[in-house]
């Protein structure tokens, strides 16, 4: 279910959607790959082979739903929970794991780790671990799209925590004033590091702030990739038609702690149980099985494929060498 809030009624007009609608089985497989990737990371960390990491377990739907609505020309800026966005964009899980393990074959040669992965070949300009950093740079990427007459739009993923930063206001305000083609995607996962959103915000959500800044917005069930995808396509069509930014708020939930390992002792158990019941992966899988679009054998084949992909990725990352000491001071300056 998608509720649109807009300061500009024209944005509500139906628009041709592009690209094609999301194949739900493909969406399920991509979400399962993202989940398996993050579980692999947690496992590798538990065995002392990778640094601790921030996961987005439970938030796979906005990643798959939004990224699948982008075209090859579009650019992505994201935050410290970026694995889903990268994998949804087609990143090689082996190169991502290599990056997290500090290896030479990682997307950034091992200098990023998990917290700053960018991948120019995929149009991923930035993973910002400074909360709100992606909001600060997104306007510039939108400006370059406009000034250089590039066809792409900018997708900027941030959380409810970043929405409490001043940069959220600054970024949306400037994007609205300068007519920048930016899809702001707030993955409202209810948690801001170790603090629940209800402790830090009087408002019930983020999207309500957009209208005051002259930005159209919508709220979508962030645990349903198909709903997210439809909302993102509609939002992107509005951006292309109006040349104005759009804020899409996906209501979702971070099922694991802030930074692995994390015992989640601070999490309300009833709330966690409630959201586990809305886990986007079993939810979509059950729906597809009910609708007769996925058999148990299909699901087993997908699971096997995902497992094989992660085994190959882990082997690739393991085999990749560490960077040489000479890399310490390369790429500081052009």
């Amino acid at each position: 279910m998608t509720a649109f809030l807009s300061p500009d009624p024209a944005v509500l007009d139906p628009a041709p959607l592009d690209p094609a609608p999301l194949d739900p089985v493909a969406a399920l497989e991509r979400m399962m790959l993202i989940r398996a990737y993050e579980e692999t990371l947690i496992d590798l960390h538990g065995r002392g082979r990778a640094a601790g990491t921030c996961t987005a377990v439970g938030q796979e739907a906005p990643a798959v739903g939004v990224v699948s609505a982008l075209t090859a020309d579009d650019l992505i800026l994201t935050n410290h929970r970026s694995a889903g966005h990268l994998l949804a964009r087609g990143a090689d899980p082996g190169r991502m794991l290599a990056e997290v393990m500090g290896k030479r074959d990682g997307y950034c040669g091992g200098k990023s780790g998990s917290l700053h992965i960018s991948a120019k070949e995929l149009g991923v300009v930035l993973t910002s671990t400074i909360v709100g950093g992606e909001l600060a740079l997104a306007t510039g990427v939108g400006l370059s799209r406009t000034m250089l007459k590039q066809p792409g739009i900018v997708a900027c993923f941030f959380g409810d925590g970043a929405a409490c930063e001043g940069r959220f206001h600054e970024s949306l305000n400037l994007a609205a004033v300068w007519n920048l083609p930016i899809l702001y995607v707030c993955e409202n996962n209810q948690w801001q590091a170790f603090v629940h959103r209800q402790e830090t915000m009087a408002a019930d959500g983020i999207a309500g702030q957009a209208a005051a800044l002259g930005v159209a917005s919508a709220v979508v069930d962030g645990n349903d990739p198909l709903a997210v995808h439809d909302a993102a396509r509609t939002a992107i069509a509005a951006i292309r038609r109006t040349a104005k930014p759009f804020l899409l708020e996906a209501k979702t939930y971070r099922l694991r702690g802030h930074f692995e390992p994390d015992d989640q002792s601070y999490v309300d158990k009833a709330e966690l149980v409630h959201w586990r019941g809305r886990d986007p992966i079993p939810r979509l899988r059950d729906r597809l099985e009910r609708d007769g679009r996925l058999t148990a054998a299909d699901a087993a084949r997908i699971e096997a494929r995902v497992r094989a992909t992660m085994e190959a990725a882990t082997a690739f990352a393991d085999a990749s060498p560490y960077p040489g000491a000479d890399a310490l001071t390369t790429d500081v300056y052009a």
Binding site: L137, G140, V141
Partner: peptide
């Protein structure tokens, strides 16, 4: 006006916009 722009009084977003623009071709 496209190449010579006034901005809001907001240094953070001015600098962030510059960094994002610089990373992507300007």
């Amino acid at each position: 006006a496209a190449r010579v722009r006034n901005t809001p009084l907001a240094e953070g977003i001015i600098a962030g916009t510059a960094a994002g623009a610089a990373a992507t071709g300007l």
